[in-house]
Design a protein around this nucleic acid. Structure first.
Length: 343
DNA sequence: GGTAGACCTGGACGC
DNA sequence: GCGTCCAGGTCTACC
């Protein structure tokens, strides 16, 4: 029995004319983090989603060879009705930025024509802001392999498992089978569990507090996602809100902002310093290089992060081949400044 | 406002 | 196999 013969539902999702799954899904490191899985052979994205019903479902996302052709999504492990289809579409659309303004992409390419021909403009993210925030926290003050481990353990220990019949489970062996924890699940988790079983270290209490803030309504001190995601809310206001959250500093706040589609600020870290030194030829202390990098990308204005990021991404691809060929357990674990210096 | 040190984990390295 | 060192952003105390 093949997986194709056992899908519960098949959904078609229209894409923008320039959309290319392998390039646009494999455009940011999160495509290597659970519960995402990129199958390099089939050029297929697998992702466990938590549906509004609370059930977990495994989605298999494919696209024909031509850019702009629709995504074909097969859903395993949960019955999908009309509302369920809309739910899957909405989550994948956010994750793959299918709803991103095409005019903004054209504006970016006009400012930075290097990425017009390869068609780069979209950065992969998570189906929810909450997951983006927690993934960002798990990427702070650790090397990339630890981030990979933390996300895998959070899903396995706290996330909802996909319920699959035995024959189907066998057919899908090797694919992710636990969803990313919801804010409610993480808010109820014990710090000791996160520390000991998910290997999150001192981030335990901060993750739980962040999750709690995502479960509360704004009127009771919770995070006002509607206001933060409203394009009319100024960047400075969003930054100030984010940086006041536990575990979120200047790097994390700027990274969450780019994940929200606000690209003017640069999340600068040690990897940025390496890039500034080796690719841009900047000199000085780490702090001095960061200041110079901010000035270097300032002409790209509202698209500064995209210019920086795709420049960095193409540097990785020159070293290791196209991102859609990176195996999760080999090349996909290499992305730290120290390892890249050696590479 | 700037700086130093603690926070944890996992990998590299030397013995 | 064991111990030590180091990388990695945030937070707090202190100047």
């Amino acid at each position: 029995m093949s997986a194709a013969e056992t899908a519960g539902a098949v959904i078609s999702i229209r894409t923008p004319r320039d959309y290319l799954l392998r390039r646009d899904a494999c455009s940011y490191g999160y495509f290597l983090l659970a519960p995402n899985y990129w199958d390099t052979r089939g050029e297929t994205l697998w992702r466990v989603l938590t549906l509004r019903t609370g059930k977990a479902a495994l989605a298999r996302v494919r696209q024909g060879a031509k850019a702009g052709s629709p995504l074909r999504v097969a859903v395993f492990g949960a019955a999908i009705d009309r509302d369920g289809r809309a739910d899957v579409r909405a989550q994948l659309s956010r994750m793959l930025r299918l709803d991103e303004d095409e005019r903004a992409a054209r504006e970016f390419h006009a400012l930075d024509p290097r990425f017009a021909k390869p068609g780069r403009s979209r950065l992969m993210r998570s189906p929810s802001m909450f997951e983006d925030v927690i993934k960002t926290v798990t990427s702070c003050n650790v090397t990339w392999p630890s981030t990979v481990t933390m996300n895998a353990r959070l899903c396995e220990v706290v996330g909802t498992p996909v319920k699959l019949p035995r024959r189907l489970r066998e057919a899908l062996a090797g694919k992710p089978v636990h969803a990313f924890p919801t804010a409610g699940q993480l808010a109820r988790a014990r710090p000791a569990t996160l520390r000991a079983r998910c290997r999150v270290g001192y981030r335990d209490a901060r993750i739980i507090e962040l999750a709690r803030l995502f479960t509360l309504p704004p009127s009771r001190g919770g995070i006002d996602q509607t206001r933060l995601q409203d394009p009319r809310t100024p960047d400075d206001e969003v930054y100030k809100t984010l940086i006041d959250l536990p575990g979120i500093g200047p790097y994390a706040a700027a990274n969450i902002m780019q994940l929200m589609g606000r690209y003017a600020r640069l999340p600068l870290d040690t990897e940025s310093v390496r890039h500034g030194k080796t690719v841009l030829g900047l000199k000085g202390s780490g702090a001095a290089i960061m200041k110079r990098m901010a000035r270097h990308y300032a002409p790209f204005g509202a698209h500064a992060f995209r210019s920086y990021w795709f420049e960095l991404w193409e540097f990785y691809e020159r070293k290791h081949g196209p991102s859609w060929t990176w195996e999760r357990d080999t090349t996909g674990r290499m992305f730290t400044a120290a390892l890249l210096k050696k590479g």
